[in-house]
Each structure stands twice: as C-alpha cells, then as structure tokens.
C-alpha cells in the first residue's frame, strides 16, 4: 500500500519544491515592482505625525489611519478639476482617434491601396518621433490656435501619438477578419461603405474598444505636453497637476501627494495591465501572437 502511494507523493513533493524555488526567485521582482505602490498607499492613509518620525517602524500604521489627506485634496486643491479634465481630455482624444484611425486602419488593411504597407509603416513610425522634438514647434501651433493655457491644447496634441499607434493596431486587427465575410456582404448588395459600416465594424468591436483604452492610457503617460502647454492650475490633467501644483517650493504634503497619485494611478495601471499584451503585440508588429 505504502509502496503504491510512493510515486505520486514524490511527484507532488517535486512539484512543491519546484514551486517554492520559483516563488523564492520571483519574490524579489514582485517586491521591487510593487513596493513603491504600497508605499504610496500607506503614506496616503497616515497621519502627518506618523510620517515624520524616524524612530517609528515605517511599513505599518503607528497612529490610526486617516482620510484627512484625501479631504485636503478634494476641498483645498484643484484635484477634482484635474480628474474631470483628465476624463474629458481622454474622451475627446478617444473620439478623434476613433474617427480617424478606424477608417485609416481599414483602408490600409483591406482596400489594396498602392503602397498601403509602406504608408502604414510611415504612420506608425511617427509614433516614434518623441514629444521632446515636437513640443517647441507645437507650442507655437497651440498658441496660434489660441489654445494655450487650456486643456483643449492637449485634446489637439495627444492624437499625434494615439492616431499612429491605433491605426497600426487596427490595421493588424482588420487583417484578421476573413475576407469572405466582406465578400458575402457585397454579394448581398452592400456597397463598399455599407460592407465596412454594417459588417466589418461590428465584428471589429473588440479592436475598436482596445483603441479607446489605448487612447486613454497613452494620454495618461504624457507629462511633457501637459507641462509645456497648460499652466493655469485648474486646467491640468492629473499626471501634470499633481506634481506641479501640489508641491509648493520646498513644502511637500506627502500624504496628499501620495493619495492623489494612488487614486488615479492605480485604476489606470490595472486597466492598462489587461491590455498590455495587445500593446506589446502592437509595437512588435504582431510577431509574438
């Protein structure tokens, strides 16, 4: 009996040992990756005296947790405005991106335009032109449009990186929709535009939604444009407002700062997390499918 049990037991033991080894090896990476977020979270809920005592054990609460830091954020700063700005900017950027990138991605993937592949690559490469080269000329353009010092400047500027990325993404997406579906629609009497609107677009909804997410998350990664183009305190998006408005001279309100960072940063990070593989597929050209 005991002998019959032996092989599965050692098998299990082996598997447990393997797991323990892997967990032991990967724990440092997880700690390094997550600690700054944990540190944000614990700081945000600490009372000030708890933050500035060197003899305290810093990784847990020594005084009762508090929501005071968040109250300061919403009652004494423009934090509420920034959240609102961030959402409206992202909504506009997503809209502009969809209206331009969906048709372009479709045209490049499906309509056999001469030089379509090269045009697609050219559009995608503009994603790699860094903002640091464009921000000075764009500041002039933004001023000419009368948009300086308003978040509308960012609505105009952010599509310069979301359109190239999403066009490329959608181009890959439309290529995977079988040609037969479109042909069938045409046989049934749809024109070119009809086939696109009534047949291709609905089945491509996941790709379209992914583009919306990227329009949002990529906009959140910007700092330079927001810093350079929007100076009034109530016009900034969160990633620009928090570091520029909440730090005054040498005085840091670390509790509120970390609360502000956490409250918006964490949901964005989690959302982006779900779409990270698509992002990697996008930039590597779909090789790693």
């Amino acid at each position: 009996m005991a002998r019959a049990m032996a092989p599965p037991m050692t098998q299990r033991r082996k598997s447990i040992r393997r797991h323990l080894l892997i967990y032991a090896a990967i724990t440092p990476y997880v700690v390094i990756a997550v600690f700054p977020i944990y540190w944000m979270a614990i700081t945000a809920f600490k009372q000030d005296p708890d933050l500035y005592r060197m003899e305290h054990f810093p990784f847990w609460f020594n005084l009762a947790p508090t929501l005071r830091n968040f109250k300061i954020l919403f009652y004494q700063t423009h934090y509420g405005d920034w959240i609102w700005n961030t959402f409206t900017i992202s909504a506009w950027v997503a809209l502009i991106t969809l209206v331009t990138a969906v048709p372009a991605g479709y045209a490049l993937a499906r309509l056999k335009l001469p030089g379509a592949e090269n045009t697609g690559i050219a559009i995608f490469l503009t994603y790699l032109v860094p903002p640091i080269i464009l921000f000075l000329p764009l500041s002039r353009i933004v001023a000419e449009l009368g948009l300086q010092d308003s978040w509308w400047a960012l609505v105009v500027v952010y599509p310069t990186f979301t359109i190239p990325f999403c066009t490329w993404l959608l181009m890959g997406f439309f290529k995977t929709v079988p040609m037969e579906i479109e042909e069938a629609a045409r046989v049934d009497g749809c024109g070119q535009a009809g086939a696109f609107l009534r047949v291709i677009l609905p089945i491509s909804l996941p790709g379209v939604l992914t583009s919306v997410i990227f329009a949002f998350t990529l906009s959140m990664q910007d700092f330079l444009y927001g810093l350079a183009f929007v100076s009034p305190g109530d016009q900034k998006p969160v990633p620009v407002g928090v570091p520029t408005e909440l730090i005054r001279g040498d005085i840091y309100y670390w509790g509120s700062l970390m609360g502000a960072a956490l409250l918006v940063g964490l949901p964005v990070a989690i959302l982006y997390n779900f779409f990270l593989d698509r992002f990697i597929q996008g930039i590597t050209g779909g090789i790693g499918k």
Binding site: A33, P36, I37, M220, Q221, V242, P243, G265, N273
Partner: peptide
C-alpha cells in the same frame, strides 16, 4: 505594474 502606472505619478512615490 511599474510599466503601466503613469510615469509622472510613479516618480512621485
């Protein structure tokens, strides 16, 4: 998470 968190926000931490 470090890669997906908006950069300006994680730098604060």
């Amino acid at each position: 998470i470090p890669f997906t968190l908006p950069i300006a926000i994680s730098v604060l931490s």
